[in-house]
Design a protein around this nucleic acid. Structure first.
Lengths: 196, 196, 196, 196
DNA sequence: CCATAACCGAGACGGTACGTCGGGTCTTATC
DNA sequence: GATAAGACCCGACGTACCGTCTCGGTTATGG
């Protein structure tokens, strides 16, 4: 909940209080750099310079660029992925998968998420940061709406994997994400199985 | 198959021919380093030193550690993922997914694949290297065996995604891969849908 | 005098001030390396390692090994070449030339000077560093003492060349420097011409 | 006379004889490179490529760029510095010094000589190559013509140093060589002393 | 007339230094 | 005590040249 790493952090000791202005500048700089130069070319040094901030100030609150980035975009996750409910379950699921695809391939926050996911494959620290996957919550919300009409839907973890896994893995691995027709077919097949 | 990058390279011009010995030493060094220090800590310098080879010799044939690693492990993919056919479609599919899970979480080549997949999320060059995903071919081979008994199975691309996607995404994203029970349930549901 | 390149450098802005300790260590390392391995085998990398200093720290203040070396030994020039005056002009001149010969062939600073002079022949940047030749000042000081007794001595530049040139060129070009007898004869002839 | 290093070398065993064409190409390439990029930027590799020659072919006959360069320009020395005799000793000496100055500052061979002289200050091998200084012979020839009219002229070695040293050292050290007026004055003073 | 031997081009090879960059840590003066 | 600036040590980056080595191919002499 709340914060991942550097979070809000209101301390009450003596001394100069943390500059909220700095925090914002750094997060914005990280966001901007991600879209401008990509994750690989992002550096802590670059973030600091871009933010007009001392290098130590970044390190004081975050350890790695992954942490900065995660905090920079985690807030956008929920709002980008909340899709209005639709009475027809198929349309409901399809709407979510469409939004998800768009999010992962176009939205800066989605691109950041993919970058972090990538980093997590060879950096346990980043993997730990992502331990409560930010995609899970919105996905479960959608599935909860459909569950009453799909009695065979398995328990949450597998259902999420079956629902979102094909889309996500295609974005991560494939040359192109699943298109609208494929998504529609995927949802249809899923409901077939979950209703039986 | 053939070669991804530095590949076999039979040149017929003048000059000293490429040392096959070097190539092997470098690939082995890369493999060893991956399991010993992890992908993030691997460096071109380290590979060269470990292989007892000049740094330039590595750069001459590969541009990045990703290319070295890919060539180092791509040969292991097919053999690790070929699973003996089983008369029962459900068992056939389950056997493959089990092998795949093991491959991705334990086998050095599988770990290398995950690392490369991760790198591909923020490095377009690596993404290009993986454009013909080495997982696709073995997966299609399994599906082809099952297709006669599953008339509703969609065209290849989506079928692969539905079959393997949940497993793969769970490995990449989740805290733990899908367990045996979940795999069995996944296959059952899939066959339900594909048979209808 | 002041500084040639990296010099004293008193800055008053923010940021960590330059470490005088580092500066000294680097200059000493350069000096040591010169006598131990010779100028040709000196490298910036070697200087840094010898001084126990990061490579960047050397490059931050000096661009080339020539600059380091010049600053390392320029301070020794004046003191090594100041010779006590002698009432007899011939003895005065002779004393200086003897000291100069010894300096150029034995003293570390003198050897450094020759190395730099050599480098200056094919590197304009080094030539620029030596533009106010450190030998000129002490030489003029000696000539100034003798000038009242040598009315025909030409203006400074030529006088210096006539006085010191034969000695210097012999050190640079010849198999061996001019010996004591030759020096004495040189001074005698010079005074003959300058008194006329 | 004879050869410095790679020389003419006519061997009489079996096997393909040395290609004179190659030798010429290499020497020309060295000469060209000297004037185009300077001594410091010359490399054995560059010479070979410029000459359209295998690298080994250069190394087979010369060990260092200094050797190549020396052989490339040593032939030009004598011819460039032979000055027609003049009945007036002063004019005779002056003519030589003028030619010498021009040679050292403008002629490619002279520039090569300075570069080699520079290298000799920190490379004993190059110093050995220059042990019979190519400037000495032509200088002695001039002095020999004047000696009958200058009875006080000292033995050869010192005389050469006194005569040429001021000019040479000024070229090597000073910001600019001695000008015509200074040369004239130098010769006059020298003859004053040598005639006494 | 063919074998031997040395030459030549090309270019891969193990090294080492280059000069730069980023990672983290530290030490200032300032706020 | 937080901040901006920036020096510091460290180590990897990718490149260049070193000098050596192996190729295929060429050109002489000598059996």
């Amino acid at each position: 909940v709340s914060c991942y790493c550097g979070g809000v952090h209101t301390r009450n000791g003596p001394g100069r209080p943390r500059s909220e202005r700095c925090r914002q500048d750094i997060l914005e700089a990280a966001d901007d750099l991600l879209v401008e130069v990509g994750y690989a070319a992002m550096t802590m040094k670059g973030i600091a310079e871009r933010a007009g901030v001392g290098r130590q100030t970044v390190y004081r609150w975050w350890s790695t660029k992954a942490e900065v980035l995660l905090e920079a975009c985690v807030e956008d996750f929920a709002e980008e992925l909340t899709v209005e409910a639709h009475p027809d379950p198929a349309e409901d699921l399809l709407g979510y998968l469409t939004a998800l695809t768009r999010f992962l391939t176009e939205d800066p926050a989605g691109i950041a998420y993919r970058a972090l996911l990538g980093e997590a494959q060879h950096d346990p620290a980043v993997r730990a940061l992502l331990h409560d996957d930010p995609l899970t919550a919105p996905t479960r919300a959608v599935l909860a709406r459909v569950r009453p009409r799909a009695p065979a839907m398995p328990e949450n973890s597998l259902a999420v994997a079956q629902f979102v896994g094909p889309v996500l893995s295609q974005v991560l691995v494939g040359p192109a994400p699943l298109g609208p027709a494929a998504l529609r077919r995927h949802v249809a097949l899923l409901l077939t199985a979950w209703r039986a």
